[in-house]
Design a binder for these strands. Structure first.
Length: 639
RNA sequence: GCCCGCCUAGCUCAACUGGCAGAGCACUUCACUUGUAAUGAAGAGGUUCUCGGUUCGAAUCCGAGGGCGGGCUCCA
């Protein structure tokens, strides 16, 4: 039989040959390096049989998918070790993930595995790796596999097989054996455990079986594997560097904000952080003006009646802070939409006035579960760059395009890109199919018009309408939603919103909820990590620090700072009686963009010696000159 | 909310098996008057997260609560 190699050459092999045989035939070096085969783009075991006339390739460590392969191998070896150290453990699933793998275990009663047990586990794993145990695949009838796992008391595996049979009509399943461990697994695997060259366990966490909070809580052990110790070390080094960018750490070090037990999930903004916050808000307001929004201000606290009307009392109450006042139930707003809808409803509107765009940097409170709070990224109190657009149905697409434009404008200022998702109609929904068709088409049309790529999230829309979500990742690769553009047909219904059409009869507007930064808190968290704390000049809490060399230069330093302040810049003089080296060090650690050293020669010549953060000494230049240049550089961003 | 871990000075962290709570940085004062990443000395700073228990004795052991961290679930 013949198979075709990636080079286009044909390779002649005896019938019944495997990928391993093909690798051997090509050369002994490749045979040693071979980890798996590739058939029609899919990885297969080296022991898989070749088919006549097929194009094939041999996968080695250089293949982009090879790491996932050995990480999956590593997960099996971890399960092997766990079963040996903790007999009676039930194994569940153990897939490779970005940067590593995990395995979920249900340990026997009384066994609690923590990261203190990692050393023992790792040692056990290493022994199996050293032994170079072969991964052997066998395909068996589902019934036989069921029997086997039932006997072993592996209930989760039994459930998995039962579901494979009932949901997918599977008749045979594949099992993989490595050393003493036999696991239900789709494969493929490397030929033996010795291919895992570097291995490390990273963390332990709880995880619900099948992600369902009503099912048992399992113990998830995270780890990673590489083809060399060097690669592993490099990865650990990257993790360490990512931790140094953590906004919680930088927020404390740069004195931007703090948290306190007296108000969990709510940031206390220090003066420097407040500068950043306000600068971002100014940017938002500029954009609102540019895109034709009108800013409004609505109350924090509303009678329960409003929340009943909006549906929050039924659907969102557990996330609301509720209080009593003079025998009335009141709720702090978790969203601005009911207030804006109420405001719209309280006046008359002509079709000539549409779209009405109400914007508000709304202060919201949401009673998020304690376990979900996370620095600035997930808080209970935050400020949303929120707006609601009331428009006719034929205005939807243009409005959504404008929202996307505005969002992409803003992200571009920071050189950041959002991952965009379109979420379509869920099972539980209101409105007719025709309405959903139009709404989804409008959102898709807007995305395509703007020419952005997006992922389709089928069935994940809100019950009242489809939505576009914009996500960004933090320093550790965690994805957070920032912006959202949502169509809402429900709220206008509930609040009986109307506008008078050209036909002089009343029509129902559509409501578009949209936020682009999402929450200023979260966005600032992402910005801090994006810039590793080195905020661009226009956002920096202190833009220039003036450093007098000796006491006699202090009044000149003050004058320099004042001159910069006159130019609209944020400047401070460091009048401490410390060495210049010390002041520079402190300024560098504070990540202040510019430091201006002033001594005798600067004072006499009306100059400043400019030092740029991260670049060093740029030499002296006239103060006037520098002030003008800096004011220009600090003038907002692009556009 | 659930699982695991952690909580000592403003920050980073010490304190052998239960036996007088410490250091560096920051802060205050004094001296030094400084030219591009830490001048020196002295001083002050503690409910060891909270409450309860065990013990002659608890930062340390046990229980409950709070907060934080890593995940899971949730997240209009």
């Amino acid at each position: 039989m013949k198979v075709q190699l990636p080079s286009g050459d044909w390779l002649e092999l005896p019938d019944g040959a495997t990928y391993a045989d093909a690798a051997e035939a090509i050369g002994p070096g490749l045979a040693r390096a071979a980890l798996a085969g590739r058939r029609n783009g899919e990885l297969v075991d080296l022991s898989a049989a070749l088919e006549d006339g097929q194009p094939i390739s041999i996968v080695t460590a250089k293949d982009p998918e090879a790491l996932a392969l050995i990480r999956h191998d590593a997960a099996h070896v971890l399960a092997t070790a766990a079963l040996e150290l903790y007999p009676g453990t039930q194994v569940t699933i153990g897939p490779p993930i970005e940067d590593g793998f995990y395995y979920d275990f249900d340990f026997p009663d009384g066994v609690k595995v923590t990261d203190g047990d990692f050393e023992r586990l790792e040692q056990q794993v290493r022994e199996h790796i050293r032994a170079q145990e072969r991964f052997e695949r066998t395909d068996v009838p589902a019934g036989e596999a069921l029997e086997r796992f039932r006997e072993q008391g592996q209930d989760y595996k039994v459930e998995l097989i039962e579901d494979l049979v009932s949901d997918r009509g599977v008749e045979t399943v594949s099992l993989y054996r490595n050393g003493p461990f036999l696991d239900l697994c789709r494969g493929p695997h490397a030929p033996d455990t010795g291919r895992i060259k570097a291995f490390k366990l990273l963390s332990v966490a709880g995880a619900y079986w099948r992600g369902d909070e009503r099912r048992p809580m399992l113990t998830r052990i995270y780890g990673t594997a590489f083809f060399s110790k060097g690669d592993l070390d490099e990865h650990l080094e990257r993790l360490e560097q990512a931790r140094a960018r953590d906004h919680r750490r930088l927020g404390r070090e740069l004195e931007l904000f703090r948290f306190s037990e007296v108000s969990p999930g709510a940031a206390f903004w220090l003066p420097r952080g407040t500068v950043v916050f306000n600068r971002l808000l100014e940017l938002t307001r500029d954009k609102w003006r540019e895109y034709g929004y009108e800013e409004v201000k609505t109350p924090q606290l509303y009678d329960a009646e409003l929340w009943r009307t909006s549906g929050h009392w039924d659907k969102y109450r557990e996330h609301m802070f509720v209080t009593e006042a003079e025998d009335r139930s009141m709720g702090l707003k978790p969203m601005n939409c009911p207030g804006h809808a109420h405001l719209y409803a309280s006046g008359r509107h002509s079709y000539r006035d549409l779209p009405v765009r109400y914007a508000e940097p709304g202060l919201l409170h949401r009673n998020e579960p304690s376990g979900t709070l996370h620095g600035l990224m997930r808080v209970r109190h935050f400020c949303q760059d929120d707006a609601h657009i009331f428009c006719s149905e034929d205005q939807i697409e243009d409005e959504v395009i404008a929202c996307l434009d505005m969002g992409l404008d803003i992200y571009e200022i920071f050189g950041m890109e959002a991952r965009i998702e379109l979420s379509t109609r869920p099972e539980q929904r209101i409105g007719t199919d025709a309405m959903w068709d139009r709404a989804e088409a409008a959102l898709r049309g807007a995305l395509e018009h703007r020419g952005v790529s997006y992922e389709l999230n089928v069935g994940d829309g809100a019950f009242y309408g489809p939505k576009i979500d914009l996500h960004m990742v933090d320093s550790l690769g965690r994805s957070w939603q920032v912006g959202t553009v949502q169509l809402d047909y429900s709220m206008p219904e509930r609040f009986e919103l109307e506008y008078t059409g050209a036909d002089n009869s009343e029509h129902r507007p559509v409501m578009i909820h949209r936020a682009l930064l999402g929450s200023l808190e979260r966005f600032i968290g992402i910005l801090i990590e994006h810039y590793a704390g080195e905020l661009p000049l226009w956002l920096a809490p202190v833009q220039a620090l003036v450093l007098p060399i000796a006491d006699r230069h202090e009044s000149y330093a003050e004058r320099v700072a004042e001159r910069l302040a006159e130019a609209g810049l944020r400047a401070e003089a460091d009048g401490r009686t410390e060495s210049v080296g010390r002041k520079i060090r402190d300024g560098e650690l504070r990540k202040v963009p510019y430091m201006l050293v002033v001594g005798d020669s600067e004072q006499q010549g009306g100059e400043v010696a400019v030092r740029r953060h991260g670049e060093g000494n740029l030499g002296s230049r006239p103060l006037e000159d520098f002030a003008r240049a800096l004011a220009d550089e600090a003038r907002p961003r692009k556009r």
